[in-house]
Design a protein around this nucleic acid. Sequence first.
DNA 1: GGATATATGATATAATATAACACTATGAAA
DNA 2: TTTCATAGTGTTATATTATATCATATATCC
Lengths: 168, 168
Amino acid sequence: MKKSSDDRQVIAPFHSHAHDHGQCVVDAIAAAETCCAKDGLSFTPLRRQVLELIWSSHGPIGAYDLLEKLRASRRNAAPPTVYRALDFLMENGLIHRIESLNAYVGCGDPERHHGAQFLICRDCQCVAELDDDEIGKAVTRRAKALGFSIHQQTVEVVGQCADCAARL
Amino acid sequence: MKKSSDDRQVIAPFHSHAHDHGQCVVDAIAAAETCCAKDGLSFTPLRRQVLELIWSSHGPIGAYDLLEKLRASRRNAAPPTVYRALDFLMENGLIHRIESLNAYVGCGDPERHHGAQFLICRDCQCVAELDDDEIGKAVTRRAKALGFSIHQQTVEVVGQCADCAARL
DNA sequence: GGATATATGATATAATATAACACTATGAAA
DNA sequence: TTTCATAGTGTTATATTATATCATATATCC
């Protein structure tokens, strides 16, 4: 896919439900393998499976929905099973938590530590992950002016994506 | 308080625990009265009391903490009692919900419809509410480039405030 | 006053997340 | 090789946050 200046900082753009999502999942797992290997983290079968399920869901997914899917192959999975995997994946930048949805999405660029902004479509529930320098810098500048040192930024924008605007 | 260029867009700055917070509460309630009167909303005793409790808490407060305080004067208050009041206050811009804390704070500028960014200190739990044009515009610009129409922006930045940096 | 909408009371339950303790496997230290 | 330490998972229980539902009261409008 050719990049235009407008999507240069778009990590995970909005994409149609028609694209080859299976490939997205495969690529994401491969990237996670690489990350974990590099950092000496143990990417266990459980963690891998949870990450696959998150990517497979094609959008933010809640912990309990995840649990239900997980139970297809692990009959006795319990909430901690899922939450521990989620904690691991978040700590290591493989997924993000969308606070306003109590849900989780795969990170489109796990190998790079980055700020993130999410555009969340309230109609189709799809999420675009951005890493917009301008936004990040504006936040940093203002925080600095107030003597505030940033630990973590969460930018969540709820609205309607282009596809839904056209479709509805 | 004299305004410098740096706090021009700061709606509710970080403030020491020593300031006259009673006055903040009184002012906030007065502003809410004005807003509601202007918009023909019924600012009932319950809603007023919940707003007072939120402002009195001097920082983000959770629904169940609020419920407990509310029970001092309303023995049989239940979760819906609080959540309904919170819904009213949010819908009408009198408070904001901090997603990453599951908590609520009074809005420092209820009479004006505005975007909001929050700097949340993880040490003292204080919150600064900003309405930084640059941040808002950067978000808007990028959303526009993707054909995304914004409904609501939540910017939450977790870190350490200047006071805590000096104190710890 | 009666109809309608709005607000609150009251009970139950849903949805999200964590605590605590037990068990296993792996690998390092002695 | 035994012992110890650690990381990962299993299992049960419970905490925390939020909503559904139906009943009752209060205000408003005609």
